[in-house]
Each structure stands twice: as structure tokens, then as C-alpha cells.
Write a protein that binds this DNA or RNA. Structure first.
Lengths: 198, 198
DNA sequence: CCCGGTATTGAAACACGTTTCACTTCGGAA
DNA sequence: TTCCGAAGTGAAACGTGTTTCAATACCGGG
């Protein structure tokens, strides 16, 4: 991302941190970033587009943290739970920003489907790595069982985050229910494997 | 819901069926329903509020269909999968409407948290009924295992629907991945039960 | 029947995402 | 250096969700 676009996204993040989705007024973003409104719209097709770019920035952060301190644990369940707990705490550390990013992501503009899919793929890679207990790089592509598991888990996580954003429950619920769900699904996957090979 | 409010919601549904979320212009809703804009705003605090009311109407439909033809199957997995398939097809039958309702639901205004929670509770009841293979009325409240299962499953379903709405995948993917996930989680729940009693 | 308050109306105003446009600036090719 | 096209600018305009307000209609209690 070139310098100007990055500055725009960073400005959006700052405004979102302070006042959430509504505080990201594109006129303000443009003027704070020192560009004209038209320039902003040349780089980002919409407010959602801009905030999804911001979400991608935040995801780099998560990937960096995971690389530095990979989720530990003796079992797959423990590692995956630890990963989601880390991701949840990282994202919810700045609640206003998190709500803004989630709202943009949840809006699900079909025009941004490609971006959203790429975003999900990065998340899946991190989950697969936690599941296997080793780094994501140079790893074989996930098998069918892993694919099913990671897709389902990231979906549960996403819905939990939206529930948090909508005031349905708190951060602890996100982490706790996520753990329960990981345990359940990993158990199920193991059991399915057992049945298939029997 | 009194007559005037119902007429407003029905008008919103008609407009959404034709042109989706953006086609529900509140000025149009008001004039087509034969009320002033201010009257609409006395009943519904926002466009989202209105569309969530519409979602509740649609859910009555689902409940009616489930009551008339409860999901069949010899196993819990089959019944729950059948239920979600039925619900998915029912909702996605009118794609524009579905996208509009999902968008409103996903926006997750904290002011509407109560409504959203009540909505989710109704869905959970239907899933629990399918899981048990009997009607939802006069049934004992779900136990912890059932609660975990139904929450996780409705979350996966919700995320899948949002993915569909965002153009990430088609209706078949929603139904198929939902089935896979149901199987996995029911297996996991049974296995967990086994481990706990052993 | 009359009164008082509440709901409804119609219309205007406001905010903000988005678009448009005429003008300027900039960077590289000739 | 000059020129061209792309990018940027500033400002205005537009659409739609939301709010506001004065005027009017409605309705139950005296």
C-alpha cells in the first residue's frame, strides 16, 4: 500500500478508536490525512472498503503477534482456544475500533467479496497452524477435516464477535464460548476420524 | 403489533423483495403504507429496527412451517440438518429480502440487543426441538450440552448466511457446510458426554 | 358538546456517504 | 523546455436516513 493510502487508513483507525463507526466521517478522514475527498474515493470505493483495509492492517498485527508468540498447549484444543483468545483480546483491546471494523466486515458488500475471502483465508491459515501446533509457513495445505474445522470455528468466532459488538454479551463470553466450541468440534473431528478408519 | 405498524412492515418487506436493502427508502415505505414519515419513526426507531421487525415476521413463517412439518430423521444430526436446510431455503427463497434482513440483523445496533436476543432465543428453541425430535412446546429447558450445541450451530448458520449475502458462496454451500458442521458438533457432544460419564 | 392532550401530518432542515466537475499540479516523454 | 495525461484539489450537489416543528385530526373524560 503506498504512503498516501496508508495515511488515510491510519487516520480512519484513529477516528474509529475514538468514536467508532460513525466517528469515521469521510470528510474528516480526508482532511486529517491531508487529502481531498476525491482522492480518498480514488483509493477506496466506500467507507466499508476503507475500514476493511483497516481490518487488514490489524490482521497484520495479529499475524505478527502469533509469529512472535505462537499459541502454546499440549493438545490441539488448547492451542486453538489460546489462539482465539489471543485474537479476541487483541481485537477488543480497542472496542470502538473493533466495533467499527466488525460493522464494515459484516455489511458484506458483494463488491468486496474477494477481499473478504482473502481475509478469511489468512485467518484460516492461522487456525490451521494453531491446530497443528507449528508455524503456518511452508506447511502442506489443510485436509478436508482441517478445512471443515477451521471454517466452522472462524464462523463461530465471527458470530460471537458480532454478538459482542451488538451488546449481546461481553468479551469473556466470546472467549469462553469459543473455548467450549473448539473443544466440542475438535472432539467431533477426532471421533469422525476414528469412525472413518474403523 | 397493531394494524398500522403491520402495514408499515409489510410494505418494507415488499420493497425489500424487489430491490433489497437500498430499495427500502423510508419515504417510500411511509407513502406506500399511507402514513407520514414521522408516524413511521414513532413506531420504529430506525431502518434497522423496521427490518428486524420484518425479520421477526418471517420467523413466524418459519415457526409455522416447522410446526406443520417437523424436520424428520432417525438421528439428531439428520433432524437438525434438515431443520437448517428448511430454514435456509425458506429465507433464501426471496434473496433480496433475505439480504436486506440479514444486513439489518448484522448491523447489530446495541439499542436493539434485547430484540436480537429474543430473536435468537426463538431460533434456539427450534433447534433444540429438532435435536430432541419433538415439538418445542412444553419441553424442559435445554441442558448445558444442548445450549452449547444450539448456540454454536446458530452462530455457524448466521455466519454462513452472511457469507452468502456477501457473495462469498451460494445457497448450496450454506446447506452443505451446515450439515457437515452439525454432524461434527453432534458427534463431539456425544463423545463429550461419553467421556464425562466414564 | 367541549376540552385537553396525544397522535398524525406535511414539509422543511440536517448530516453524511457519495458523485460530479472545472481547475490545478505533477511527472515523465518528446 | 514543452506538452500531455493522470492524479489531486476544492467546492458544490445529490440522495437518503433522521430530526424537527407548526398545524391539524382524533378521542376519551368532564
Amino acid at each position: 500500500m503506498e504512503e498516501r493510502a496508508r495515511r488515510i487508513v491510519e487516520t480512519a483507525v484513529e477516528l474509529a478508536e475514538q468514536g467508532g463507526f460513525e466517528a469515521v466521517r469521510l470528510r474528516d478522514v480526508a482532511s486529517h490525512a491531508g487529502v481531498a475527498l476525491g482522492t480518498l474515493y480514488r483509493r477506496f470505493s466506500s467507507k466499508e472498503d476503507l475500514l476493511i483495509a483497516a481490518f487488514e492492517l490489524e490482521t497484520f498485527d495479529l499475524e505478527r503477534r502469533v509469529a512472535q508468540r505462537p499459541p502454546r498447549g499440549d493438545t490441539a484444543s488448547e492451542r486453538v482456544s489460546a489462539f482465539f483468545a489471543m485474537a479476541t483480546r487483541g481485537l477488543l483491546r480497542r472496542p470502538n475500533l473493533a466495533r467499527a471494523l466488525l460493522k464494515a466486515h459484516a455489511a458484506g458488500d458483494p463488491q468486496l467479496a474477494k477481499r473478504t475471502a482473502a481475509f478469511n483465508a489468512r485467518l484460516h491459515d492461522l487456525v490451521v497452524a494453531a491446530l497443528r501446533g507449528r508455524a503456518a509457513e511452508a506447511a502442506p495445505p489443510p485436509n478436508e477435516s482441517e478445512r471443515l474445522l477451521t471454517h466452522a470455528l472462524t464462523r463461530v468466532w465471527f458470530a460471537l464477535l458480532l454478538g459482542w459488538a451488538g451488546g449481546l454479551h461481553g468479551q469473556a463470553t466470546v472467549i469462553d464460548e469459543m473455548s467450549d466450541c473448539v473443544e466440542l468440534m475438535v472432539l467431533g473431528a477426532e471421533q469422525k476420524q476414528r469412525l472413518a478408519t474403523a
